[in-house]
């Protein structure tokens, strides 16, 4: 292979003049390409000639808009391997998914149909070759933002809890501080904690059988056996 041939190699393969291709997208004639979302292209291949063609593969790629020979992203190649007889037409569906970070920029979108005739001559037809604007995918909740909001929610909850705790704690402390002083000034008497010795004890919550048992004088298991023995003896003497 000579050098000139090598240089020309991408241009050597061209479309057959008796094969016509056309394309539309799921979004219409103009492709609406969303970053990170699948886009569908429908390709029409009409064999107007007298020889059969075999569609070997369809490939798509994003090119640098200023230099279409510079490939930025290659899309999945499909290989229909479908024979389109002379005079027949064929439709193909080509799905591609632009990278998630490609939004908000324009790219050269190239979709090639590669086919051969029965004599193994290769042809390539660039069925789409235009600069398209890739739209950023605004809709939908991706995991990153979801967890960001979740964290913000948790943090605000924590802050709220902290504030609430602080405020309620202060007010309770304030009450405690206020009541004894008020008593001291009005009644001139310092309150002393006397336990339950001279205050009314609330027995309401204790069930009847337990109260009965207390009144009977059943020794609590906490008492030492020695004491229990003493009590028994004293009751015997009575």
């Amino acid at each position: 292979m000579t050098k000139s041939e090598e240089d020309e190699e991408p241009d050597v393969i061209s479309a057959h003049k008796e094969a016509e291709t056309a394309i539309i997208f799921a979004s219409g004639v103009e492709p609406s390409v969303l970053a990170g979302k699948k886009a569908s292209a429908y390709i029409h291949f009409a064999n107007k000639g007298s020889s059969n063609f075999i569609i070997t593969s369809i490939d798509g790629s994003f090119r640098y808009p200023q230099d279409f020979s510079y490939v930025i992203q290659n899309f999945t190649v499909i290989s229909p391997n479908k024979m389109i007889d002379a005079g027949y037409e064929g439709s193909f569906q080509y799905e591609f998914q632009p990278g998630e970070l490609s939004g908000g920029r324009s790219f050269g979108l190239v979709i090639n149909v590669n086919y051969k005739d029965t004599e193994e001559n290769l042809y390539r037809d660039a069925v789409f070759n235009q600069t398209v604007q890739v739209i950023e995918d605004e809709e939908g909740l991706d995991t990153e933002t979801f967890f960001m909001y979740l964290m913000l929610l948790g943090m605000s909850g924590l802050i709220l809890l902290g504030v609430f705790h602080n405020v309620s704690g202060k007010s309770r402390r304030g009450k405690k501080r206020n009541t004894p002083s008020a008593n001291a000034t009005t009644l001139n008497k310092v309150q002393l904690e006397t336990g339950t010795t001279n205050g009314p004890v609330d027995y309401n919550w204790i069930p009847e059988e337990t109260l009965k048992a207390i009144n009977k004088g059943t020794p609590s298991p906490r008492r030492s056996p020695k004491k229990r023995a003493n009590k028994q003896r004293s009751s015997e003497t009575e």
Binding site: P80, K82, Y88, G90, S91, F92, Q93
Partner: peptide, 8 residues
């Protein structure tokens, strides 16, 4: 009449 195939 024109004959056309769908995608496979």
């Amino acid at each position: 009449v024109t004959f056309g195939y769908s995608n496979e």
